[in-house]
Computed example of a mutant assay.
Amino acid sequence: MTSWIDSSTGDDSGFSLDVLPYGIFNTRIGAAIGRYILDLKALAQEGIFTTIDFDSSTLMENTLNSYAALGKQVHRQVRDLLQELLAHDTSRGTELRDNQKRRDRVIVKMSDATLHLPMSIGDYTDFFVGPYHAQNPGSTLHRNYMSQPIAYHGRASSIVISGTPVRRPKGQFLVDDKPVFAYSQKLDFEVEFAAFIGQGCEDGSPIPVDGAEDRIFGFVIMNDWSARDIQNWESSPLGPFNGKNFATTISPWVVPLEALEPFREPPVSSGPLLPYLHQKREDSVYSVPITVSLSGKKPYSPFVMLAHHTAGGCSLRTGDLIATGTLSGPSRKELGCLLEATKNGSEPYEFHTSETGAGRIVRGYLEDGDIVELKASGFGSCTGRVVSAECQA
């Protein structure tokens, strides 16, 4: 499916008509199409959505939360209408393509926009569902790993949009087997996907695994920055704390599940699961290529994660962010963090600094000034530059 916008610009952004991700630009709701943004607030003000039975004022807000909470039926109708307006051979061409004044009001160049966090995030949970990541550093899987998805609760206040500088954290870790308080020497990235909750369960009612898909608004790519020396010293007997809570970067565009249908596949075998985690649909995980690494297969789908997350009575709300944990594969080029790729810094890894492979750098862990960029077609970029904690961002 092609658009009269992206097909005419020689666009290579990945923001095709089949994707149409949502985001917030200049404090307005928009949808990315090629090198442009369709201003959904302006379209709502123009009365474009009157054929759909929903509160179009939700598209006039400065976050996606209210619109996300309307549910899948509304989202599909809005998506279908937008695709019809933008399709190359549209039957509704007079409403936008052939209306120059309206086009000038509702179509914005991506280069002229400032992007913001797409949703107001109340809570953030990071799962640990990549079996390669769990074992690549030399660890053995705990007995519970293949029975349930493991997770910890992160800091929603530390989630930032792509492009935000990341300060090197200071914390406690061991040097010569003695605890010190200093700047982390083992700063790492983690390649992850994360789901935004559309409709939650604020009363604490469990979400059934086969109904969890309808509760997800869409996905972003995510870099869960990690200070491995701080994390290693603090994580026993509880879990990650200061080694994880200083920054988490997400891409600005939320990709709806419909756009990810071509990437669905069965999960890896996780052994026998308890009945509340059994899914009827087999192709329940998504395998989407990322430029830093390839997403590894997972034993648990995002729908199993939601079912397990709420099984004990935990409430989820619109805008909550649920991450997969580091996505790695079996080969070195598929590893999703430096902890794995360098064997905890002992075997430095060589990175290409351009798509042509012309430039190369070698790293054990990240250095000040390094720019980490995760990219996936249709998601845009998830980028962060490491700066010294003493620098002004």
Rank of each mutant, 00 (worst) to 15 (best):
C337Y: 01
G198A: 07
S205W: 10
E340V: 01
C382S: 12
M119F: 11
S13D: 09
I33T: 02
T326N: 05
Y132L: 06
G384V: 04
D210V: 04
F196R: 00
N26V: 10
P272F: 13
L174V: 11
E84K: 10
N136W: 04
F173P: 00
G325I: 06
G138E: 07
S328C: 12
P206S: 08
G345L: 06
F246W: 09
H308W: 14
D177W: 07
V285K: 00
V220D: 01
D177C: 08
F219P: 00
D11K: 05
S284V: 09
A31C: 14
A389L: 06
E95S: 12
S388K: 07
L374N: 03
D176W: 10
G296V: 11
V254G: 03
G329P: 01
K297R: 15
I207D: 00
V78L: 06
C314N: 14
H309Q: 15
G384N: 06
P299M: 13
R35G: 15
A156K: 04
I216T: 01
N65P: 06
C337T: 04
S57N: 15
D53F: 12
P302N: 05
I5Q: 03
P330H: 07
P252D: 07
G211R: 14
I221L: 06
P275I: 05
F303I: 06
G271Y: 03
S284G: 13
N344E: 14
E265M: 15
K186C: 10
R97C: 13
R360K: 15
V209R: 02
D224Q: 04
V180C: 08
P169I: 05
K72A: 13
I33N: 01
T342A: 04
D55G: 09
D177V: 10
D320R: 07
E46L: 12
V160L: 09
H352F: 14
D370K: 07
D89L: 11
P348N: 07
S157T: 15
L338Q: 03
Y286Q: 03
H133S: 15
V268A: 08
Q231V: 05
R385Q: 15
A195K: 00
R228Y: 07
A32K: 13
Q83P: 03
K244L: 05
D126S: 15
G10S: 11
S226I: 09
E234S: 08
M119R: 02
I121R: 00
P137Y: 06
D210I: 04
L277H: 03
P330K: 08
G93D: 05
R281H: 12
F246N: 02
S388I: 04
A227V: 09
L294P: 00
Q100S: 09
S235H: 08
W225H: 09
P137E: 05
L70N: 05
I207G: 00
I150F: 11
S287P: 00
A307R: 04
G336C: 09
L321T: 05
G319P: 07
S293W: 01
I371S: 12
E350T: 15
Q279I: 03
M1F: 08
E84L: 11
R281K: 14
G359T: 08
